[in-house]
Write a protein that binds this DNA or RNA. Sequence first.
DNA 1: ACATAAACGAGACGGTACGTCTCGTCTTTTG
DNA 2: CAAAAGACGAGACGTACCGTCTCGTTTATGT
Lengths: 194, 194, 194, 194
Amino acid sequence: MTETPHGAGGGRKRNEHAHEAILEATLATLREVGYQQLTMEGVAARAGVAKATIYRWWPQKSHLIIEAVGTQLTTPLQTQGNSEADIRAVIQRTIEFVGGVLGDVYAADIAHDPTAGPQLEDLLGPYRAAHTAILLAAAARGDLPYTIDATAVLDVINGAVLFRKLMKRPLDDHFTDQLTALITSGQIPRTLTA
Amino acid sequence: MTETPHGAGGGRKRNEHAHEAILEATLATLREVGYQQLTMEGVAARAGVAKATIYRWWPQKSHLIIEAVGTQLTTPLQTQGNSEADIRAVIQRTIEFVGGVLGDVYAADIAHDPTAGPQLEDLLGPYRAAHTAILLAAAARGDLPYTIDATAVLDVINGAVLFRKLMKRPLDDHFTDQLTALITSGQIPRTLTA
Amino acid sequence: MTETPHGAGGGRKRNEHAHEAILEATLATLREVGYQQLTMEGVAARAGVAKATIYRWWPQKSHLIIEAVGTQLTTPLQTQGNSEADIRAVIQRTIEFVGGVLGDVYAADIAHDPTAGPQLEDLLGPYRAAHTAILLAAAARGDLPYTIDATAVLDVINGAVLFRKLMKRPLDDHFTDQLTALITSGQIPRTLTA
Amino acid sequence: MTETPHGAGGGRKRNEHAHEAILEATLATLREVGYQQLTMEGVAARAGVAKATIYRWWPQKSHLIIEAVGTQLTTPLQTQGNSEADIRAVIQRTIEFVGGVLGDVYAADIAHDPTAGPQLEDLLGPYRAAHTAILLAAAARGDLPYTIDATAVLDVINGAVLFRKLMKRPLDDHFTDQLTALITSGQIPRTLTA
DNA sequence: ACATAAACGAGACGGTACGTCTCGTCTTTTG
DNA sequence: CAAAAGACGAGACGTACCGTCTCGTTTATGT
């Protein structure tokens, strides 16, 4: 009748302190030794945590890093009404993101960790959506003169920034000007510095 | 004076048979397991060669792979007189190169192997020079409407292709069209398929 | 049927259902994978019980196993009046006990778990007492011709059986004959098979 | 013409210095922390050696320990012409061997490491052979009054000593007397102390 | 011709990190 | 408030490659 054979219980909650310590250790290690030299053991030791605890929540190194980097992202952009300025802002934001550790994640993990791609897209989805909206708004204004494939254009921007970073070439105003001009196709009254 | 402490001496020549076997084993391994899974030990075993022999000639994994890939490169492009067709050809050639193993080399090594960048540039220098010439010819014809920074434009092309490869998005005619249009800024009478 | 699911007075009773499930899971696991492969986690999972519940009642793995094995023991021997038959029975009983899982407990735990020894002695005390009585009765009959040290003799029997088990040598009639003869010192009319 | 594609070389020799350091570290660790607390990592660290080097030569912990212990064995016994003294010597030698680390090896490894048994037998074979010869010599003299199964008798001696060790009971003269008397069946003029 | 010296195979080695496993403890939730 | 569920720190496991280092052999060179 009053059978309660077994079946109580909930389980311990995640230890938020350890969780945060791991993410912080990950970011600190990234800053100090870079992506390739970051090891799970190093992060565990630095966070004062058992390796297994890291593997419990982040089965792959890339997941850990993507989440850690994700805590540093700023809010998505919105159009300011000026197409050229908007596009320039998109490029600058891309430089901030892809020009940093995120670029290393792309370079190192996406190609050979099939789970990293989707996870990165989850993280960056809102930003890509915002950038897509900005491009479409510019097209609606007539400032992008062709039937735009926003995915391709954003791939061009991301790729260009990533490549420059990998080649250790400057991601400066000159490059931003060039890329902006390329995207806007000379349709917008430009004031290129050189 | 003439340093000859104890007689003469020659030294054995490089074993070309082993050399080629290593490059072939490298390419075969690349094709089968990809860049990240390629190990020096695996290549040595496959080539029937001692690890030290590989290290003697290619002190870094990236050097080995770059040389192996380099044996597969075709001849550089030349302008055909039609700017849009030229630029399209440059993009297609980039897809051939960067869309393949070379893209993995960029992604995996350039970022953390300081010697890989210069070596890659040595290898790809003639191609980059040819592509630069094509862009400058187009600019001379007035088909590229701004003071072109050929380096930046080639970085955009390479980066876009690399990024699409990493994201596993198609490197097809549609993408080629989009990128061609972006570069040519809509100044050239286009016949886009879609 | 001593169900007291919500006792008001003082403290919840031990959950007999879980207790038995644990002992059964222990025995089943012992039979299937053996002593060394038995893990607390495995037993807990099989019994549908939390690990902590096991540790609450059996602080050491050896305790759990000793109690589980203890539920399987048959009743102690008594002298049948015939010294040789008695001693043979003692040996056979020892083969039943030590030749089974108990032998593994001796081998694995006694040496390095200081609490396992006393607990085993608690469990086996009645049997050792019974065997001692049988040996002393034989000595009283004059069938054991020396001032017997029953502890030493039982140690010899236990040890011989344990060693044969460890060495995977047969614990058969021939061995029983040999050991019986050794103990009885040839003082009893023997009918050894060979 | 005469192709010798590849097929030279023999490989680097074993590093005897490291080899000995490992065995010494094993023995020292055994003495200090005992069998169960000995870890491969501890031995490697103590010997100043990579773990993989240990695993290369001793794939199992038991192998390493057996070889280490084997370096400490003294020469086998020989009969001195006196059966009782011989048997007593066999027992004492067994106490030296099995009463020490070897006993732990029996207890811990033989039962669950199928390769440890044969390896131990290889190591102890000469000693068992010597002891067998001693027993047979005693039987030939008529001092062992039954058709002796030397294997069984040696198992009894080994087992008794092992069991006493595991139970932490003394392996002293009294025990030696008792066991000697048991083996010799009272046929030899004895001078038992008690 | 013959010593010299480099190239080579084989593979041992110290080292680092991997990802997994089990232990015994601790925390939270559920009934 | 006991028991489930299960997270946690600790630390050993055995494996995989790394890049270096003997070995003993093979092959040219330059006296």
